[in-house]
């Protein structure tokens, strides 16, 4: 069986600074992988490199997405093929209603896949259903995207986008940052609803807390740009007690 995502010896740098130094990771359909690690380990870089953010230079290694070379695809192509990045800090777009943004995104992806665009009434119906399921106030759809949203609203909005776009690989970059415990529960609940045997997820986080609610199948420790340890969900609990110091020494 082809893995959903296969990262082999990935090396990347930004502005001449080496961030990823031979990272290996395989994610199969239906699996949730947590990636934990200290600040500066390369967690966000990994998510940006997978999504294709400009400015990062790939200096070595390979990433296969459903067996295809990910780096041969432009960032919007990757999105259309099912790579979704839930941003740590979702961006604001003044004057663009959330619904307008959702329509633009979904139809851009459908067009790229050669599918018919969804009509506005159909889209509205679908978005409303999803919003209800995720506990999102439909009023949010009319507000400009992320403008004046609370931290919790922004993350819920990311979940809504994820639910609508139905990606095959979700990368959640520090989804817990800026959330209080109640907001965290709501967002985690949304993510859990999107768990599927057809979908893989990478949950990037600094803290074990998030993993109480989004329970991973595999936990990795990322330090100095490499996976230095892999284990089950107990590994996260263990890290909570010991911290990352041991890995930083190892990396140095």
């Amino acid at each position: 069986m082809t893995a959903l995502l296969e990262i082999r010896d990935l090396r990347a740098e930004i502005g001449g600074r080496k961030i990823l130094n031979g990272l290996d990771l395989t994610v199969n359909k239906g699996e949730i992988h947590a990636i934990m690690g200290p600040n500066g380990a390369g967690k966000s870089t990994l998510s940006y490199v997978l999504a294709g953010k400009p400015g990062y230079e790939i200096t070595g290694g390979q990433v296969l997405f459903n067996g295809e070379d990910l780096f041969e695809m432009s960032p919007d192509e990757r999105a259309a093929k099912g790579v979704f990045l839930a941003f740590q800090y979702p961006l604001e777009i003044p004057g663009v209603a959330t619904l307008t943004f959702l329509r633009a995104a979904l139809n851009a992806q459908r067009k790229k896949r050669g599918e018919e665009e969804l009509s506005s009434p159909d889209l509205l119906k679908r978005v409303r259903e999803l919003a209800k399921k995720l506990g999102i106030d439909p009023e949010m759809l009319r507000r400009p995207l992320n403008v004046g949203f609370s931290g919790g609203e922004k993350k819920r909005n990311e979940t809504l986008q994820m639910a609508l776009l139905e990606p095959r690989l979700c990368v959640l970059d520090e989804t817990d940052s800026g959330l209080d415990i109640d907001a965290l529960k709501v967002v985690a609940n949304g993510v859990n609803q999107l768990r599927s045997t057809e979908r893989g997820m990478i949950v990037i986080t600094h803290y074990q807390r998030l993993l109480d609610y989004i329970v991973p199948d595999v936990v990795h420790v990322l330090a100095a740009g490499r996976i230095v340890e892999t284990g089950g969900k107990d590994l996260a609990l263990q890290l909570e007690a010991t911290g990352y110091a041991q890995y930083q020494n190892e990396a140095a």
Binding site: D76, A79, P90, L91, Q109
Partner: peptide
């Protein structure tokens, strides 16, 4: 980049913003 990550092309993203 946020827009492009959601599937919009470069030009669609500029147009939207």
């Amino acid at each position: 980049f946020y827009c492009i990550q959601r599937g919009l092309s470069q030009e669609e993203a500029v147009g939207l913003v």
